[in-house]
Protein backbone atom coordinates (compact mmCIF):
# COMPACT_ATOMS: atom_id res chain seq x y z
CA UNK A 1 0.00 0.00 0.00
CA UNK A 2 2.83 2.37 0.94
CA UNK A 3 4.37 1.74 -2.46
CA UNK A 4 1.16 2.57 -4.33
CA UNK A 5 0.83 5.72 -2.25
CA UNK A 6 4.37 6.81 -3.20
CA UNK A 7 3.59 6.04 -6.86
CA UNK A 8 0.48 8.22 -6.77
CA UNK A 9 2.41 11.05 -5.06
CA UNK A 10 5.20 10.89 -7.66
CA UNK A 11 2.74 10.81 -10.58
CA UNK A 12 0.76 13.73 -9.15
CA UNK A 13 4.04 15.62 -8.63
CA UNK A 14 5.14 15.01 -12.23
CA UNK A 15 1.65 15.96 -13.41
CA UNK A 16 1.69 19.21 -11.41
CA UNK A 17 5.07 20.21 -12.78
CA UNK A 18 3.88 19.32 -16.28
CA UNK A 19 1.00 21.80 -16.14
CA UNK A 20 3.03 24.45 -14.30
CA UNK A 21 6.83 24.58 -14.43
CA UNK A 22 9.96 22.71 -13.32
CA UNK A 23 10.44 23.53 -9.63
CA UNK A 24 6.76 24.24 -8.90
CA UNK A 25 6.55 21.54 -6.23
CA UNK A 26 9.67 22.73 -4.45
CA UNK A 27 8.40 26.31 -4.46
CA UNK A 28 5.03 25.36 -2.95
CA UNK A 29 5.65 22.19 -0.91
CA UNK A 30 9.30 22.66 0.12
CA UNK A 31 10.40 19.32 -1.26
CA UNK A 32 12.04 18.83 -4.62
CA UNK A 33 10.16 16.80 -7.23
CA UNK A 34 13.35 14.80 -7.84
CA UNK A 35 13.36 13.75 -4.16
CA UNK A 36 9.77 12.55 -4.51
CA UNK A 37 10.66 10.56 -7.66
CA UNK A 38 13.67 9.07 -5.90
CA UNK A 39 11.59 8.08 -2.87
CA UNK A 40 9.01 6.40 -5.12
CA UNK A 41 11.83 4.43 -6.77
CA UNK A 42 13.20 3.35 -3.37
CA UNK A 43 9.67 2.32 -2.36
CA UNK A 44 9.67 -0.46 -4.93
CA UNK A 45 11.22 -2.48 -2.09
CA UNK A 46 7.69 -2.55 -0.65
CA UNK A 47 5.97 -3.39 -3.92
CA UNK A 48 3.79 -6.45 -3.65
CA UNK A 49 1.39 -8.44 -5.78
CA UNK A 50 -1.27 -6.41 -7.51
CA UNK A 51 -4.61 -7.35 -8.93
CA UNK A 52 -5.21 -7.58 -12.66
CA UNK A 53 -7.37 -4.47 -12.57
CA UNK A 54 -4.57 -2.30 -11.11
CA UNK A 55 -2.14 -3.67 -13.70
CA UNK A 56 -4.56 -2.92 -16.51
CA UNK A 57 -5.40 0.57 -15.23
CA UNK A 58 -1.73 1.54 -14.88
CA UNK A 59 -1.00 0.23 -18.38
CA UNK A 60 -3.99 2.06 -19.86
CA UNK A 61 -3.03 5.37 -18.18
CA UNK A 62 0.58 5.06 -19.36
CA UNK A 63 -0.52 4.36 -22.93
CA UNK A 64 -3.00 7.24 -22.90
CA UNK A 65 -0.55 9.78 -21.47
CA UNK A 66 2.15 8.64 -23.91
CA UNK A 67 -0.24 9.05 -26.84
CA UNK A 68 -1.09 12.57 -25.66
CA UNK A 69 2.64 13.33 -25.43
CA UNK A 70 3.26 12.09 -29.00
CA UNK A 71 0.40 14.27 -30.27
CA UNK A 72 1.65 17.35 -28.42
CA UNK A 73 5.23 16.93 -29.61
CA UNK A 74 3.93 16.34 -33.14
CA UNK A 75 1.95 19.60 -32.92
CA UNK A 76 5.00 21.50 -31.71
CA UNK A 77 7.12 20.02 -34.52
CA UNK A 78 4.75 21.21 -37.23
CA UNK A 79 4.23 24.67 -35.72
CA UNK A 80 6.97 26.41 -33.75
CA UNK A 81 9.16 25.83 -30.67
CA UNK A 82 7.29 26.43 -27.40
CA UNK A 83 3.91 25.93 -29.12
CA UNK A 84 2.77 23.44 -26.45
CA UNK A 85 3.55 25.76 -23.57
CA UNK A 86 2.01 28.77 -25.30
CA UNK A 87 -1.26 27.04 -26.15
CA UNK A 88 -1.76 24.39 -23.47
CA UNK A 89 0.52 25.61 -20.69
CA UNK A 90 2.14 22.19 -20.63
CA UNK A 91 5.86 21.93 -19.97
CA UNK A 92 7.33 19.22 -22.27
CA UNK A 93 10.42 18.72 -20.11
CA UNK A 94 8.37 17.95 -16.98
CA UNK A 95 6.12 15.79 -19.16
CA UNK A 96 9.14 13.57 -19.83
CA UNK A 97 9.43 12.85 -16.10
CA UNK A 98 5.74 12.00 -16.03
CA UNK A 99 6.23 9.49 -18.85
CA UNK A 100 9.26 7.90 -17.16
CA UNK A 101 7.53 7.68 -13.78
CA UNK A 102 4.36 6.25 -15.30
CA UNK A 103 6.09 3.56 -17.33
CA UNK A 104 8.64 2.71 -14.66
CA UNK A 105 5.96 2.06 -12.05
CA UNK A 106 3.67 0.35 -14.56
CA UNK A 107 6.48 -2.11 -15.23
CA UNK A 108 7.10 -2.62 -11.52
CA UNK A 109 3.39 -3.19 -10.90
CA UNK A 110 3.47 -5.69 -13.78
CA UNK A 111 6.25 -7.61 -11.97
CA UNK A 112 9.26 -6.40 -13.94
CA UNK A 113 12.52 -5.96 -12.07
CA UNK A 114 14.19 -2.59 -11.39
CA UNK A 115 16.75 -2.57 -14.22
CA UNK A 116 14.32 -3.78 -16.85
CA UNK A 117 11.65 -1.29 -15.73
CA UNK A 118 14.09 1.62 -15.84
CA UNK A 119 15.47 0.61 -19.24
CA UNK A 120 12.01 0.11 -20.73
CA UNK A 121 10.71 3.39 -19.30
CA UNK A 122 13.56 5.37 -20.89
CA UNK A 123 13.30 3.42 -24.15
CA UNK A 124 9.59 4.22 -24.32
CA UNK A 125 10.29 7.90 -23.61
CA UNK A 126 12.91 7.91 -26.36
CA UNK A 127 10.44 6.20 -28.69
CA UNK A 128 7.46 8.50 -28.05
CA UNK A 129 9.53 11.68 -28.01
CA UNK A 130 11.33 10.72 -31.22
CA UNK A 131 8.12 9.51 -32.87
CA UNK A 132 6.34 12.83 -32.22
CA UNK A 133 9.18 14.86 -33.69
CA UNK A 134 9.89 12.50 -36.60
CA UNK A 135 6.21 12.34 -37.56
CA UNK A 136 6.30 16.14 -37.60
CA UNK A 137 9.24 16.15 -40.02
CA UNK A 138 7.48 13.55 -42.18
CA UNK A 139 4.24 15.54 -42.16
CA UNK A 140 5.94 18.79 -43.20
CA UNK A 141 7.96 17.03 -45.90
CA UNK A 142 4.93 15.25 -47.35
CA UNK A 143 2.90 18.47 -47.15
CA UNK A 144 5.45 20.21 -49.37
CA UNK A 145 5.43 17.33 -51.83
CA UNK A 146 1.64 17.11 -52.09
CA UNK A 147 1.32 20.90 -52.41
CA UNK A 148 3.31 20.94 -55.64
CA UNK A 149 4.19 17.40 -56.68
CA UNK A 150 5.27 18.35 -60.21
CA UNK A 151 7.28 21.46 -59.35
CA UNK A 152 10.56 21.72 -61.24
CA UNK A 153 13.90 22.12 -59.46
CA UNK A 154 14.20 25.84 -60.37
CA UNK A 155 10.64 26.42 -59.10
CA UNK A 156 11.50 24.79 -55.79
CA UNK A 157 14.75 26.74 -55.50
CA UNK A 158 12.88 29.97 -56.26
CA UNK A 159 10.48 29.17 -53.45
CA UNK A 160 13.41 28.82 -51.04
CA UNK A 161 15.40 31.79 -52.41
CA UNK A 162 12.83 34.12 -53.96
CA UNK A 163 14.48 36.86 -56.00
CA UNK A 164 17.98 35.57 -55.45
CA UNK A 165 17.73 32.29 -57.39
CA UNK A 166 16.04 33.71 -60.53
CA UNK A 167 18.60 36.54 -60.51
CA UNK A 168 21.45 34.01 -60.42
CA UNK A 169 19.88 32.09 -63.31
CA UNK A 170 19.70 35.33 -65.30
CA UNK A 171 23.37 36.07 -64.56
CA UNK A 172 24.36 32.59 -65.77
CA UNK A 173 22.57 33.32 -69.06
CA UNK A 174 24.27 36.72 -69.43
CA UNK A 175 27.86 35.71 -68.70
CA UNK A 176 30.31 33.25 -70.24
CA UNK A 177 31.56 30.40 -67.98
CA UNK A 178 35.09 31.83 -67.77
CA UNK A 179 33.97 35.24 -66.52
CA UNK A 180 34.54 36.85 -63.14
CA UNK A 181 31.63 38.30 -61.18
CA UNK A 182 32.38 41.03 -58.64
CA UNK A 183 29.95 40.89 -55.74
CA UNK A 184 29.21 43.22 -52.78
CA UNK A 185 31.18 42.96 -49.53
CA UNK A 186 30.05 40.19 -47.17
CA UNK A 187 27.49 41.27 -44.57
CA UNK A 188 24.09 42.91 -44.27
CA UNK A 189 22.16 43.76 -46.35
CA UNK A 190 23.95 41.43 -48.82
CA UNK A 191 23.89 38.34 -46.65
CA UNK A 192 23.65 35.96 -49.61
CA UNK A 193 24.92 37.97 -52.56
CA UNK A 194 27.98 39.12 -50.58
CA UNK A 195 28.98 35.60 -49.56
CA UNK A 196 31.56 34.37 -52.07
CA UNK A 197 31.29 30.67 -51.14
CA UNK A 198 27.50 30.78 -51.41
CA UNK A 199 27.56 32.69 -54.71
CA UNK A 200 30.17 30.34 -56.15
CA UNK A 201 27.75 27.44 -55.65
CA UNK A 202 25.23 29.09 -57.95
CA UNK A 203 27.59 30.63 -60.49
CA UNK A 204 30.38 28.05 -60.89
CA UNK A 205 32.51 27.77 -63.08
CA UNK A 206 32.43 31.57 -63.04
CA UNK A 207 34.88 33.11 -60.57
CA UNK A 208 33.33 35.13 -57.78
CA UNK A 209 35.17 37.92 -55.97
CA UNK A 210 34.12 40.46 -53.36
CA UNK A 211 34.34 44.08 -54.46
CA UNK A 212 35.03 45.98 -51.26
CA UNK A 213 33.96 49.50 -50.42
CA UNK A 214 36.80 51.81 -51.43
CA UNK A 215 38.00 49.49 -54.21
CA UNK A 216 38.31 51.16 -57.57
CA UNK A 217 37.00 49.28 -60.52
CA UNK A 218 40.23 49.94 -62.45
CA UNK A 219 41.78 47.10 -60.46
CA UNK A 220 39.27 44.78 -62.04
CA UNK A 221 38.98 46.28 -65.50
CA UNK A 222 39.95 43.24 -67.51
CA UNK A 223 38.29 41.04 -70.02
CA UNK A 224 35.15 39.24 -68.88
CA UNK A 225 34.71 41.13 -65.64
CA UNK A 226 31.19 41.79 -64.49
CA UNK A 227 29.81 43.64 -61.47
CA UNK A 228 26.66 42.46 -59.77
CA UNK A 229 24.03 45.12 -59.08
CA UNK A 230 22.14 44.29 -55.92
CA UNK A 231 19.85 46.38 -53.77
CA UNK A 232 20.24 44.10 -50.75
CA UNK A 233 17.56 42.18 -48.93
CA UNK A 234 15.42 43.68 -46.20
CA UNK A 235 15.08 41.18 -43.41
CA UNK A 236 13.95 41.20 -39.81
CA UNK A 237 17.53 41.98 -38.86
CA UNK A 238 17.99 44.97 -41.13
CA UNK A 239 14.49 46.36 -41.67
CA UNK A 240 15.35 49.79 -40.29
CA UNK A 241 17.51 52.20 -42.25
CA UNK A 242 20.66 50.79 -40.67
CA UNK A 243 22.26 50.28 -44.04
CA UNK A 244 22.57 52.17 -47.21
CA UNK A 245 21.03 49.80 -49.67
CA UNK A 246 22.20 49.50 -53.25
CA UNK A 247 25.42 48.16 -54.76
CA UNK A 248 27.78 49.18 -56.34
CA UNK A 249 28.18 52.59 -54.76
CA UNK A 250 30.62 53.94 -57.33
CA UNK A 251 30.23 54.94 -60.97
CA UNK A 252 31.51 52.23 -63.31
CA UNK A 253 32.50 52.51 -66.93
CA UNK A 254 30.45 49.87 -68.69
CA UNK A 255 30.33 48.23 -72.09
CA UNK A 256 26.75 47.40 -71.35
CA UNK A 257 24.57 46.65 -68.38
CA UNK A 258 21.40 44.75 -67.71
CA UNK A 259 18.48 45.44 -65.43
CA UNK A 260 16.94 42.15 -64.30
CA UNK A 261 13.18 42.53 -63.80
CA UNK A 262 12.06 39.53 -61.80
CA UNK A 263 8.39 40.54 -61.70
CA UNK A 264 8.02 40.58 -65.48
CA UNK A 265 10.78 38.02 -66.04
CA UNK A 266 12.52 40.35 -68.52
CA UNK A 267 15.99 41.81 -68.90
CA UNK A 268 16.55 45.40 -70.13
CA UNK A 269 19.89 46.20 -71.78
CA UNK A 270 21.55 49.62 -71.51
CA UNK A 271 24.65 50.77 -73.44
CA UNK A 272 25.97 53.42 -71.06
CA UNK A 273 28.01 53.75 -67.86
CA UNK A 274 26.61 52.79 -64.49
CA UNK A 275 25.54 55.66 -62.26
CA UNK A 276 24.85 54.70 -58.61
CA UNK A 277 22.58 57.74 -58.15
CA UNK A 278 20.12 56.83 -60.88
CA UNK A 279 20.55 53.08 -61.42
CA UNK A 280 19.08 51.88 -58.13
CA UNK A 281 17.89 48.47 -59.27
CA UNK A 282 17.00 45.41 -57.27
CA UNK A 283 19.09 43.17 -59.51
CA UNK A 284 21.32 43.78 -62.48
CA UNK A 285 24.73 43.25 -64.01
CA UNK A 286 27.42 45.50 -65.44
CA UNK A 287 29.93 44.37 -68.04
CA UNK A 288 33.00 46.37 -67.14
CA UNK A 289 34.55 48.44 -69.92
CA UNK A 290 38.36 48.11 -70.08
CA UNK A 291 38.98 50.64 -72.81
Amino acid sequence: MIYLFSVIVSIVTAGLETVSYLGFVKNHFFISAYTIYFISIVMILFAGQYSKIIKKISLAISCLISTIYVLLIFLESITYPNYIYTHFHINPLSFKFLIIMLWFHTMIINKSKFAKSLLLAILILLGVDGAGRTLGIMYLGIKDITAAPLATYPEKMTKVYPGFYPAMQAIIKLTPPDSTILIPPQGSPWDKEGNAAFMTYFLYPRTVKNLFEGDTIVDYAHTNYYVLISHGVTSMFNSSNMFEYGWPKIAIKAKQMWKINLDSNTIDTYYRDFNPQTDQWDWGLIEVSYE
Binding site: M138, G141, I142, D144, K156, M157, V160, A197, Y201
Partner: peptide
Protein backbone atom coordinates in the same frame (compact mmCIF):
# COMPACT_ATOMS: atom_id res chain seq x y z
CA UNK B 1 9.21 8.83 -46.94
CA UNK B 2 12.78 9.83 -46.05
CA UNK B 3 13.84 9.18 -49.66
CA UNK B 4 10.84 11.08 -51.04
CA UNK B 5 11.54 14.12 -48.85
CA UNK B 6 15.26 14.10 -49.67
CA UNK B 7 14.80 13.76 -53.42
CA UNK B 8 11.91 16.24 -53.67
CA UNK B 9 13.37 19.10 -51.68
CA UNK B 10 16.09 21.23 -53.24
CA UNK B 11 19.53 21.14 -51.76
CA UNK B 12 19.68 24.16 -49.46
CA UNK B 13 21.56 23.14 -46.29
CA UNK B 14 24.40 25.63 -45.84
CA UNK B 15 27.42 23.30 -45.53
CA UNK B 16 26.22 21.31 -48.53
CA UNK B 17 26.00 24.38 -50.71
CA UNK B 18 29.30 25.84 -49.63
Amino acid sequence: ISFAIAIYHPLTAWDSLA
